[in-house]
């Protein structure tokens, strides 16, 4: 039943994901300190731990007549699906789960975010949450198709849906070199699916925190952990898809994978401090009439190269 699954890897995976996610949060904290004109002491790296401790102490909240079941289910789904998605990412050469449909698997885990975020917004019986949840759906309608096509473009280049084989196919040339549009679209989607930085409108300040508006205590922590975990999982996936996986001189492949993942993650975090929020009502049209044709043309180019 679990032939393709590295069991001890599966046990370690959630914690490894948390660790990488915490690194992203630490980096974000450092950039925030710099933006505020403060010194960035070494202990800034502990800030995510501090935030987690804070949320563990803070009381949970219940709004009037929430749909508590759906609310909590939605929040928990974020992290669970992030672990599922990360399972097919080869850490160097070997993923926790080797599947011949790994690319589709990742995509399927990602679509569960549609449900997760909407439920988180709906469950609280609060206007801000409602607006945030629906904003995420609108955002998902915009980024999902370009992202699917970006995944397919990488699979096309390798002729396989197995992520390990996609990485292996880049032995001579990293896909990012001749699929730059697909890479950029994938990174945009990575930001959008983890409603992070420029695509954080579902949790926007203008709507009192959107999907996060009524969450406190551990309920909030679970959602935030899931969000960072998705950011890390998406960054980790971009490496075997476009950046040659664990390929690199001297160092072991897992270390190369980690280094590349952290580099992508750093870029994604940096973007948060560099760009304002992209409003969904404007992004919708841009995604459909600019991003979508662009990635289709990219796929066409790749398929012509492949044959």
């Amino acid at each position: 039943m679990t032939d393709g699954l590295a069991l001890w890897g599966a046990v370690v995976l959630p914690f490894g994901l948390l660790l990488v996610a915490t690194t992203a949060a630490s980096l974000s904290a450092a950039l925030g300190s710099a933006a505020a004109g403060r010194a960035v002491p070494v202990r800034t790296v502990l800030q995510p731990v501090q935030e987690a401790a804070r949320l563990l102490v803070v009381r949970r909240r219940r709004t009037q007549h929430p749909d508590a079941l759906l609310w909590r289910l939605g929040g928990g789904t974020l992290f669970v699906t992030a672990v599922l998605a990360a399972a097919v990412v080869p850490i160097g050469d070997a993923p926790v789960l080797r599947s011949e449909v790994g690319v589709v698997w990742f995509n399927a885990a990602e679509t569960l975010l549609w449900a997760a975020l909407w439920l988180t917004g709906w469950g609280g019986n609060s206007v801000a949450g409602l607006i945030g949840g629906y904003r995420f759906l609108a955002q998902a309608l915009a980024y999902e198709l370009p992202m699917m096509l970006a995944l397919i473009t990488a699979a096309l280049g390798a002729g396989s849906l197995d992520v390990v084989q996609v990485a292996a196919a880049q032995e001579d040339l990293w896909f990012v070199v001749w699929m730059p549009v697909a890479f950029v679209v994938f990174l945009v989607a990575a930001l959008a699916l983890s409603f992070w930085g420029p695509f954080s409108q579902p949790a926007g300040s203008d709507a009192a925190g959107g999907v996060l508006a009524e969450l406190s205590g551990v309920d909030r922590l679970v959602v935030l952990v899931g969000r960072y975990a998705w950011l890390a999982a998406a960054a980790g996936m971009s490496v075997p898809l476009f950046l040659g996986g664990g390929a690199g001189p001297l160092l072991p492949s897992w270390l190369w994978w980690l280094a590349k993942t952290l580099a992508v993650l750093a870029a994604l975090v940096w973007v948060r401090w560099r760009w304002p929020v992209v409003r969904v009502d404007r992004f919708e049209e841009i995604a459909w009439v600019v991003l979508l044709p662009a990635i289709v043309v990219q796929a066409l180019v790749v398929s012509l190269v492949v044959i």
Binding site: S99, E100, V101, V104, W105, N107, A108, T111, L112, W114, A115, W118, W122, Y134, L137, A140, E144, L161
Partner: peptide, 24 residues
Amino acid sequence: SAYLGVLTVLMMTVEMAVMGVFMI
């Protein structure tokens, strides 16, 4: 049918999210 199964997850999650929009 791993492909069909995973694809069903993918497509149906999206479709149900959309269905929720119209149901509500």
